[in-house]
Design a protein around this nucleic acid. Structure first.
Lengths: 205, 205
DNA sequence: ATCATAAGTGACATCGTGTCATTTGTCAAT
DNA sequence: ATTGACAAATGACACGATGTCACTTATGAT
């Protein structure tokens, strides 16, 4: 978490700093990013950076979680739109991420995040579904989901189903960048895997 | 890939170097590891290290792939033992990794690898199933698998099924370290998820 | 014994990090 | 308006890590 001093900053300075960091994290993955570049670009003193943030990761995860909130909002809208169909909602999110990214400047940011997606980064993204501090979205999402056609008997199973779905979706996103697949290729893979997930890996008897 | 000079080294010196690197990668994840520590521990000159390897990552992935080969051998034995049942085989591998690790000195090495598992590290591990240079194991494994009870109609679907299974297994391994779960807890989660995968996420009609 | 080639060495230039003593800015109380 | 107390800003600095390179040493064929 950024320090209080960061939040005390005037909006414009905060934005400049965030922009500068975003630029650096778009250039290289977080572990290669240089604070020197960020402060140079934001035109603040090196020491000031440490007034606002603990370290590189601190500002990185702050930005990442901002982004996650945007995605979360979209996801909940999709879930309502498709009457609680979790597959349709997650697929729409996937398509949005696949199609939206490559053009944008933010595309590079996501690319670096995905290609070096560690557990910590993945859980940051997973906040799309779970609670961010203020509101408990996990519960809210859980309510929105239509369980009628799902093969679950309790909340625990629902939780694990979500885990499986997000994991598989993330891996498909990562592969899009790692193997430099086209949108069509990665959507094809994703579709096959979703079908397998829905129907089950074992033959129906 | 390590340079030729590394392979020209006498076995004992090579082992010393690998040991030293392993020690460092057990101390901290690869991105925090220090070449200075490795050469100090192996009692070679800094310049020598660069005669053998391109950089830190070079030796890290070399060691990782060595480890992967051990696991691969075990996996193929399991697959034969269970008459080609892919679920039983992968579950045995999972249990081996869960139960074997925490005690060993290598445990820390795996912990650092799992907790900072990027796409590159995951594909290194995935060589358990795909071809390493010499032999084409993917094909061999593909032949060993009993497809009778699997819900697949072609090789492409088999490939994606393997992808799903390994992804889910890896995430369970990672969570074991990230959330510091007990063996029992992580096995319980894994079991639920495998059941969901087998039976399908949608209700059977 | 000679020489060419391979391997080994460590000092060095460069860059990045996080700290800290010091300066500058802000604002309430007098 | 002046003071004083607290918050914020600064950049020089100590430290440590990386990759290179000119030089030394070893090896093995002729």
């Amino acid at each position: 978490m950024p320090k209080q001093t960061f939040f005390n900053l005037p909006e414009s300075k905060r934005q400049t700093l965030i922009q500068a960091a975003q630029k650096e994290f778009s250039r290289v993955p977080v572990y290669q990013a240089s604070i020197s570049n960020i402060v140079k670009s934001a035109e603040i003193a090196r020491g000031s950076f440490y007034q606002y943030f603990e370290d590189k990761e601190d500002i990185f995860f702050f930005i990442l979680e901002e982004r996650t909130k945007e995605i979360q909002t979209n996801f909940m809208l999709s879930l309502k739109k498709y009457d609680g169909d979790i597959f349709d909602a997650i697929t729409e999110m996937f398509q949005l991420l696949i199609k939206g990214l490559p053009n944008q400047e933010k595309g590079k940011f996501y690319k670096n995040a995905f290609l070096h997606m560690t557990h910590k980064i993945e859980s940051s993204f997973s906040m799309i579904f779970s609670n961010n501090e203020e509101e408990n979205n996990l519960e809210e999402i859980s309510k929105l989901i239509n369980r009628e056609c799902l093969n679950i008997t309790n909340d625990r199973e629902l939780y694990h189903m979500m885990q499986i779905l997000t994991t598989v979706m993330f891996r498909n996103l990562v592969e899009r960048f790692a193997k430099e697949l086209t949108q069509e290729e990665v959507i094809a893979s994703y579709t096959i895997e979703m079908k397998l997930l829905k129907e089950g890996l074992y033959k129906r008897v």
